[in-house]
Nucleic acid binder design. Structure first.
Lengths: 262, 262
DNA sequence: GAGGCATACTCGTATAGACGAGTGGGCAAG
DNA sequence: CTTGCCCACTCGTCTATACGAGTATGCCTC
């Protein structure tokens, strides 16, 4: 067991009333913040920290699990504990649904990802007819049944977003919208062709910790929240024609909105 | 030690390869989701769970800490572990800075909170002149110095938001903006009086886990992320006249935006 | 040289025990 | 009746130990 490089970490203050595991977490956090451990770098192993601080392993693990739930580090079984690298972020601009972005054959996600130099993928595509949940039903004006389109988006093999669109069935049945691939410009282009000229979108944004299911689907590390975005699309008659429910890995996104000062 | 009410929780599957503490967490999570433990209700004590499942206390604590970092429960020293109640949410609409909301004497926060039946407070007000951080400097067009206005917002005694405004010093010095209370309509009204007619806002939204400092300032429970919002205000000449950096308790907010379909 | 195995290192899971500290209720003394 | 103390119950912190399971490396065999 190699000793820790001296100077990297200090020692404990036994007179402090701050719990030992908190002191250890503090020191590691500060070392990371100061760049003494770079992004992706491996922290000292649990055994090394046990030796260095002269505490039991559970105390060290307690400190590490604290940093983990802060999203600062992540552990890999058999390898070690690593400073969590900040993944490239995807910037969502508020004009991303503007008609001018809807011309080309590819989906908005694909075009934008390729422009940013990433390899986009869409997966788990699923189109079904269902009874709407209470929330979706209220937003869509209480249709009896809805068409749901689920899909997962990945960048360079990493899942970043999981989305479900809901459309009133009377509007979408037997149209290209009910096809797995709705064609160039996506379902918004198809909606307009069907006479539902889009007028405005409303987006609601929440942030929270992911459910176990979401952790699996988005392969989230500990300490990564999700952004939950619900978008409702209205046509010019004021009818809600689509609700899109999206759960995004929060470490992969920045949302950007332009607001007029009116 | 009273036995657990039977039927509330099941037993473990020793043949499963799912870790025991995960099975315990699963059962508790499901019981909470099904409403067997209501919001604010007390879970069985650690000792009761130890007896019920026949495991050691650390295993039970491991399960509970999992639920805690999911934001499902929170523990109170000396009292027990409780299902975390969902606090009332504050809805931020995208027209909240519209001029028509700027007429009255009170701040937007105060008016809106009272309308929602909450008791608003603003605290830790601090006005200073500083050198801008690299990020703020870039957004404001590299001013040498900035006026910073910090404040914390509370609803019914609970901190929900911590905000810092940055304004170019040449623009704000010796104006009402540099006063603790800038007067009716807030600093946006004052900016317009000074000839900086506001044209548009840009908002950038991220979500992440809070730093230890933010946990203290916002008195956040474990498993509650923060929403980090950075707003830049531009006047009609295209100049950035204010950057407002806001950190919000994610469990207290829903952001809502209206987007034209253009 | 290629493949496979042993081994040492990593973190993951679990046990058993000890003491500290915050909370609340009951009981006893005034 | 009120005050104050004690005690039981709660979670918080920490130690010591054990074994399992994933990973990487180097050596040995073929």
């Amino acid at each position: 067991m190699a000793a820790l490089p001296s100077g990297l970490l200090g020692s404990l203050d036994p007179t402090s009333d701050r719990a030992v595991f908190r002191q250890i977490a503090d020191q590691l956090r500060e070392a990371i913040d100061r760049g003494r451990f770079a992004e992706g770098a491996k922290l000292p192993s649990e055994a090394e920290l046990v030796d260095h601080f002269g505490v039991s392993r559970m105390t060290v693990r307690n400190a590490l699990s604290m940093l983990q739930s802060e999203g600062l580090v992540s552990s890999e079984h058999g390898k070690g504990v690593f400073v969590r690298p900040r993944p490239p972020v995807r910037r969502l601009a508020s004009d991303r649904f503007a008609r001018r972005h809807r011309e080309q054959g590819k989906s908005a996600f694909t075009v934008e990802a390729e422009a940013a130099g990433s390899r986009p993928e869409v997966d788990n595509l699923e189109v079904k007819e269902e009874r709407p949940s209470a929330d979706v039903s209220a937003r869509l004006g209480a249709p009896r049944r809805v068409l749901t389109r689920r899909r997962r988006y990945l960048l360079d093999g990493r899942p970043v977003e999981f989305a479900t669109s809901y459309l009133p069935l009377d509007l979408a049945r037997d149209t290209p919208i009910a096809q797995p691939n709705p064609g160039p410009g996506g379902i918004y282009a198809r909606l307009e062709e069907l006479g539902h000229k889009l007028d405005r979108f409303e987006e609601e944004i929440r942030a929270r910790m992911p459910s176990p299911q979401e952790i699996k689907t988005l392969r989230l590390a500990a300490g990564v929240p999700v952004i939950h975005l619900v978008r409702t699309a209205y046509d010019t008659k004021g009818r809600a024609v689509e609700v899109c429910d999206t759960v995004m890995a929060a470490d992969a996104y920045v949302l950007s909105y332009q607001l007029p000062a009116t």
